[in-house]
Amino acid sequence: MNVLKFAAALMISLVLGGCATSRSGDVYSRDQARREMIVRTGVVESIREVTMEGTESGVGGFAGAAIGGVAGSNVGGGKGQIIGAIIGAVLGGLAGSAIEENATKKNALEITVNLDGGQLVAVVQEMGEIFQPGERVRVLSGSGSTRVTH
């Protein structure tokens, strides 16, 4: 049973570790540091709250399958243990994937900006800064990402 507790603790720590990643306008990855970004200015046209889907790295499914397999192998005896382990691994894998995806979902904003040149762009980023329609903002693009800031 100690193996099961250890595996459960490992799965929880791995899944929650994925929560540390942030995609707000205030957070830069190491790859984005010291890189030139194009800055455009404009006016916020609209803001809409959206949900950024969670990650599905496979870690949650793998950990869930391991825990489910160990737990299922404690059911019955002989062939029953094998069947229990298989069923436990499948159900644990599904549950682990769902837990990882739900634990890493983020509240986000879809910010539509009317750029000074007349182009309309929409950027989705994790909630961070507060934006209001009609306010002037900067749209920064580079290194494969775009963000809206004040």
Rank of each mutant, 00 (worst) to 15 (best):
E126P: 13
S24Q: 02
E110M: 09
G117S: 15
V124Y: 04
G18T: 02
V39C: 11
I111L: 07
I87P: 13
I130V: 10
L10M: 14
K79H: 05
A63F: 13
T149E: 02
A9G: 11
I47S: 02
S145K: 08
A71N: 10
S73D: 01
V148Y: 11
E100F: 00
I111N: 06
E126L: 08
Q32N: 03
V148F: 10
Y28V: 06
T51Y: 03
S24W: 00
P133S: 02
V3E: 13
G128D: 01
N74C: 08
R147F: 05
Y28G: 05
S57E: 00
G58S: 02
Q81I: 00
G76V: 03
K105T: 11
T55N: 10
V137N: 08
L10F: 14
F62R: 04
G78N: 06
S22K: 10
G142K: 03
E56N: 11
T112Y: 08
V50D: 03
G118W: 00
G69H: 07
V3T: 12
L120Y: 00
A9I: 15
E45V: 05
R48H: 13
G134H: 07
E53I: 10
E100S: 01
I83W: 14
V123Q: 09
G42P: 06
T146M: 15
S46Y: 01
I67Q: 08
V3M: 14
E129F: 13
G58D: 01
R35D: 13
